[in-house]
Design a protein around this nucleic acid. Structure first.
Length: 683
DNA sequence: GCGATCAGTT
DNA sequence: CACAACTGATCGC
C-alpha cells in the first residue's frame, strides 16, 4: 500500500495520487491509475470545493484512467477538469514537461516523468515492468541514453529479497490458459471462476482467455469499458459462458456449493462442474525454491500467479538502469523499514557510483534541489541532459526515435487499445507509443480572468482549435491505436536486451519442481505449449487431479512467447517503436500563473487542448521546434491567470500588478512576493 | 447522514 | 505471504 504522501520534493506544488491534507493546496493533480488507494481525497467535498474556486486546477492522467474514473458518478465533477497531456508551465522560463510512460500495473496506469527547472523526476506510481523494459522506453531516453534523472519515487511493494522473482506475465498467463483449457474443454458444463478482486488489472487476463478460447468472460459490470472496444468485446454480462469473473460477497460460500457468484448452477439442466482460480502473487526467493505458477489448493480450487507489481529483481533492474541521484520508496513492504528499503535502493543510485554525494534519505521532501538557474533559463537547456549520466545506451532496437525529437507523452501500455494491449499485456507495455505533443510555449497569459473562467469547462470541447475529429475522439471513443503502436516481432537481439526473457530459464528462474505446499499440486511443464493438462476425470476429485495440474514457470520460454504472441499479447518487444509512432502531445500553456513566490516551485498548469491523435503526424519535430510550435492551440488553451482563491480573504491581483509580475518573470528577476495575494498558491 | 479511520476478511 | 476492496464498528462534524 502506497505511503507516498502526494508531493515530491522537487515540485511541491503538484500532487500525485493523493488529494487530501497538504495536497489540497496543489496547483495541479496527477493520478497514475484508478485504484482506490491512489485516489484518497479525490472525491472529498473539500477538494471539490477547491476545484470550484480554482478554475485552473486540473487533473492529469492517461485517457484510460480518465475513462475509468468518470464511469463513477462520484467523480463526474472532475470531467471538465481532466487533461490528458500536459506541460505544466509558467511561461517560458519555468515549465515542467510531463511525460506519461507505461507502468504495466493496470489499465491506464502510467508513470509520470517531470522535467523542469528543479530537475527531472520520475514518479512510478505502481508499476510492473519486466527486466529490460525501461531500456526500451523511448521517452525515457534522450540523445541515445537514459535521461538524467534526479529522483525517482518508486513503487517498492516487493522491494524485499524475499520477493526476488515473480514469474513473468507471460508465464503466468500461459499457466492459467492451460489450466483453463484443460477444464473447459471437457464439456460445456465445465466452467471456471476467476476469483478476482474488484480491481482493474485483470483485464489482460480476461481478454487473453477470451481470445484464446473464443469465449467471453462474464463480469458484473462492463460499463467502464464501454469506450474500450478491445476490452469490451471480450466481456459479457450473459451468465451462460464457461469463464466467469463475476463477484458476490458470498462468492466463496456459493462456490462451495457449485454455485457461481452470479447464481447459476447449471446449464441446460445439467449441473455445472466448477473450478476456481484465484490470482495471487507467488514469488521465488533468491535461493529458495520456487513454486509453480499454478498451485492447487483444494479439490477444485487453484491459485494462479499474478502480480501487479515488479519483483525485487525487476525493481533493481529498473532502478539501476535509471540510475537516479535519489530514490524514494513509495511503499514499505510489510516487515521492512524505511531504512532497510533505502539500503537496498541506495547502491543502485548514482551517488553510490560516483562521487556526487547526492543521496538523501527519505523524509521531508522539503527542499527542492538547488539549481543553477542560469543554466536552466534557456529553454534549450531545459531538456538536455546536462550531466553526463553513466552511458547506458538504450536497447539498440529501440532507437527509432530521433534523439532530438521531443516527445512528451506516452501512453501506458495498459491503455486499452487494441485489446490485448490495453489489458496490460506485455506487448503494449513494452512498446511505447508515445504521443508527441507540440510544445506550446506560454508566453503571455491572457489576463482576462472572466474569459478564463469559462475555459476549464469548455476548453476541451468548445474552444479547442483541435480538429473536430480530435475533439470527438476525446469526448467519445478514445483512439487507442494512437497510443499503442505495437512493435514488431521479437528478435534475437531483443532477447539479448531482455534479460528477463533470457533469464527465465537461467539461474533466476525457479526450478520447476514443485515443493510447494504439501497439499497443493502442480504440474510442471517445460514449456507452455505442452504444459499441463488436466486429467480428464475427476474434475471434482481432488485426488485424481492432484498430480496433474502443476504449471510452473516455463524454463524455456520459447513456448511462452509463442503462445503469447498468438494471443496477441505478450511478445517481448524488443523492437522499437518507429519514430513515426511517437506522438507528441504537448500542451500549451498559455497561461501564466502568478505565483510569485517561489519560483522554483511555481508551476502553472496548462491544459492542453490538443488531442493526442491529431498530433501523430508530427513525429519528428525537433525539440526546439516543438517548443516554438505553439500557436495552434494557444487560444483554446488559455487559462486564467489567477485562480479564484479558495480562501475568503484572498484577493485577486490587479491587472497592473500582474503586468509587473509578468515582466519580472520574463526577465528572470526575483519578485517580492506579497503573500496575501497568493496564499493559496504558497506551498 | 456522511466521511474518515481502523480492524478484519477475502 | 501480499494485493486491492469491501464490510462493519467507531468517532466526529
Amino acid at each position: 500500500m502506497s505511503s507516498f504522501e502526494g508531493q515530491m520534493a522537487e515540485y511541491p506544488t503538484i500532487s500525485i495520487d493523493r488529494f487530501d491534507r497538504e495536497n489540497l493546496k496543489a496547483r495541479a493533480y496527477f493520478l497514475s491509475h484508478c485504484h482506490k488507494d491512489h485516489m484518497k481525497g479525490l472525491r472529498a467535498p473539500t477538494l471539490k470545493r477547491r476545484l470550484e474556486c480554482s478554475l485552473k486546477v486540473c487533473l492529469y492522467c492517461s485517457p484510460v484512467t480518465k475513462e475509468l474514473l468518470l464511469t463513477s458518478p462520484k467523480y463526474k465533477f472532475w470531467e471538465k477538469r481532466i487533461v490528458l497531456e500536459c506541460v505544466l508551465s509558467r511561461r517560458a522560463l519555468f515549465k515542467i514537461v510531463v511525460t506519461l510512460l507505461p507502468a504495466g500495473h493496470c489499465p491506464g496506469s502510467v508513470m509520470f516523468l517531470f522535467q523542469g527547472n528543479n530537475g527531472t523526476v520520475l514518479y512510478t506510481g505502481d508499476f510492473r515492468l519486466a527486466k529490460g523494459e525501461a531500456a526500451r522506453m523511448e521517452l525515457l531516453h534522450s540523445g541515445g541514453r537514459v535521461k538524467d534523472i534526479q529522483s525517482v519515487y518508486l513503487d517498492t511493494t516487493f522491494c524485499d529479497p524475499r520477493f526476488y522473482q515473480i514469474p513473468s506475465r507471460g508465464e503466468c498467463l500461459s499457466g492459467i490458459l492451460e489450466l483453463v483449457r484443460g477444464w473447459i474443454t471437457r464439456s460445456p458444463c465445465h466452467v471456471v471462476w476467476l476469483n478476482c478482486k474488484a480491481a482493474y488489472g485483470y483485464e489482460y487476463l480476461f481478454t487473453n482467455l477470451s481470445e484464446e478460447f473464443g469465449i467471453q468472460v462474464h463480469v458484473d459490470k462492463l460499463d467502464m469499458f464501454r469506450n474500450m472496444p478491445d476490452i469490451l468485446q471480450h466481456l459479457t454480462t450473459d451468465r451462460s459462458t464457461q469463464i466467469h469473473a463475476c463477484r458476490h460477497p458470498k462468492a466463496e460460500e456459493y462456490f462451495q456449493w457449485n454455485r457461481l457468484p452470479c447464481g447459476i448452477t447449471s446449464k441446460n439442466r445439467i449441473p455445472l462442474r466448477t473450478i476456481s482460480i484465484k490470482p495471487s502473487t507467488m514469488w521465488f526467493g533468491e535461493r529458495t525454491r520456487k513454486t509453480d505458477v499454478i498451485v492447487r489448493t483444494g479439490e477444485s480450487t487453484y491459485r494462479a500467479c499474478f502480480s501487479f507489481h515488479s519483483s525485487y529483481s525487476e525493481i533493481k533492474d529498473f532502478l539501476s538502469y535509471i540510475c537516479p541521484v535519489n530514490a524514494y520508496p513509495n511503499v514499505i513492504p510489510v516487515g521492512m523499514t524505511v531504512d532497510k528499503v533505502i539500503e537496498i535502493l541506495k547502491p543502485l543510485c548514482r551517488s553510490s557510483q560516483s562521487t556526487e554525494p547526492k543521496y538523501k534519505p527519505l523524509g521531508k521532501l522539503k527542499k527542492a534541489r538547488t539549481l543553477d538557474r542560469d543554466s536552466e533559463e534557456e529553454d534549450d537547456d531545459l531538456f538536455d541532459d546536462p550531466l553526463p549520466v553513466p552511458l547506458r545506451h538504450k536497447a539498440p532496437n529501440q532507437q527509432t526515435v530521433h534523439p532530438e525529437v521531443f516527445s512528451t507523452t506516452a501512453v501506458s501500455e495498459n491503455e486499452p487499445g487494441k485489446l490485448r494491449q490495453s489489458t496490460g499485456c506485455h506487448k503494449a507495455e513494452s512498446m511505447q507509443s508515445s504521443l508527441v505533443a507540440n510544445f506550446v510555449d506560454c508566453e503571455e497569459s491572457n489576463s482576462e480572468s472572466e474569459e478564463e473562467l469559462e475555459i476549464p469547462a469548455s476548453r476541451q470541447e468548445d474552444l479547442s482549435p483541435v480538429t473536430p475529429s480530435q475533439q470527438k475522439a476525446d469526448r467519445e471513443v478514445p483512439q487507442w491505436e494512437v497510443f499503442f503502436k505495437r512493435t514488431d516481432e521479437v528478435t534475437d537481439e531483443s532477447l539479448e536486451n531482455c534479460p528477463s526473457s533470457t533469464e527465465a530459464g537461467g539461474s533466476l528462474s525457479p526450478k520447476l519442481f514443485s515443493d510447494s505446499d504439501g497439499d497443493s499440486t502442480h504440474i510442471s511443464s517445460q514449456n507452455s505449449s505442452q504444459s499441463t493438462h488436466i486429467t480428464e476425470q475427476g474434475s471434482q476429485g481432488w485426488d485424481s487431479q492432484s498430480d496433474t495440474v502443476l504449471l510452473s514457470p516455463q524454463e524455456k520460454n520459447g513456448g511462452d512467447v509463442t503462445s503469447l504472441n498468438k494471443t496477441g499479447c505478450r511478445p517481448r518487444i524488443k523492437e522499437t517503436v518507429p519514430a513515426s509512432h511517437l506522438e507528441q502531445n504537448v500542451l500549451c500553456p498559455k497561461d501564466t500563473h502568478s505565483d510569485l513566490k517561489s519560483r522554483d516551485q511555481d508551476i502553472t498548469v496548462v491544459p492542453t487542448v490538443g488531442e493526442p491523435t491529431t498530433l501523430t503526424g508530427r513525429e519528428h519535430i525537433p525539440e526546439e521546434k516543438s517548443l516554438l510550435n505553439l500557436g495552434t492551440n494557444a487560444d483554446s488553451q488559455s487559462s486564467s491567470d489567477f485562480e479564484i482563491p479558495a480562501t475568503p480573504e484572498a484577493e485577486l491581483p490587479k491587472q497592473e500588478h500582474l503586468q509587473y509580475l509578468y515582466e519580472k518573470l520574463a526577465t528572470g528577476e526575483s519578485i517580492v512576493v506579497e503573500k496575501r495575494k497568493c496564499s493559496l498558491l504558497d506551498t
